[in-house]
Amino acid sequence: MPTFDLKDVDVRELNQALHDEASAGAEFKIINPNGKHSVAVGAMYSTQIDIEGHVGYYCAGMNQQATVTVHGNAGSGCAENMTSGQVRVKGNASQYCGATAHGGLLVVEGDTAARCGISMKGVDIVIGGSVGNMSAFMAQSGHLVICGDAGEALGDSMYEARIYVGGEVASLGADCIEKPIKSEHEAELKELLGQAGIDAGDISRFRRYGSARKLYNFNIDHAGEY
C-alpha cells in the first residue's frame, strides 16, 4: 500500500499519483495531512484512499470513482463537484461540503457548517449529525439526509433535490416546503442510510422537504407583470 507522508511529500505529488491510470485498484494511505488544502483532489480511478488526520479546504474535490475516507475533520469545500465514488468524513466537515457535486455518495459522520450541499446536482449526501444554515441552497437534484438538526433557511431556492431531516429545522428557506413521507420515501431513506452505514435509529421521526416549485416555474397568472 503506497503511503504518502504529507510532512515530506508535496500534495501535488500525491494528487498526480491519483490521476495516474496505474493507480486503479490501489490502496493509498495519507498521513500527517495537518490541515493541508486540496488533499486527494481529482482522483480518477477506483482506489481506496485513507487520510489519517484533519484536512484543509477542498479535500476529495472532483472525485471520480475513488473511495476517500478522512479519519478526522475536513475544512471547507470537501468533495465539491465530485461526480462518482464515495467520500466519508469520520469527524466534522466545514462549510459547503458536497457543493455542486453531480454524483457519488458523501457521508459526514459528524456535523457540518453552513451551506452543506449548496447547488448539489445529483450527489447523495448523508450527515450523521447536524448541518449549518443555508444547507441545500439552490439544490438541483440528489438527496440530502440529515440525521440531526438543520440550521436556518434550509433548502432556500431549491429545485428538485430531496431533503430528509431527523431532527429540528430552524427555518425553511424561500420556496422550500415540507412534503409527506410515503412508503417509497421511507424505502429510499432506508437505502440511503444503509449505503452510508449510518444507524439513525427509528426513521419514523424523519421529515421530508422539497421545492414548492413556485419560484422557478413561469407562472401564467403573473404574465402581465413581465
Binding site: 490541515g35 471547507s76 444554515n133
Partner: peptide, 26 residues
C-alpha cells in the same frame, strides 16, 4: 451571523487556540 469567514477553535488542558484555518493550530 451569515458565517462567511472561516474560524476554527481548539482546546487542550494546556492551551486554547483559534485560527482562520486548522493548519495553524496543527
Amino acid at each position: 451571523p451569515i458565517g462567511c469567514k472561516p474560524a476554527v477553535m481548539a482546546e487542550t488542558e494546556d492551551w486554547a487556540a483559534m485560527s482562520s484555518e486548522f493548519r495553524a493550530i496543527a
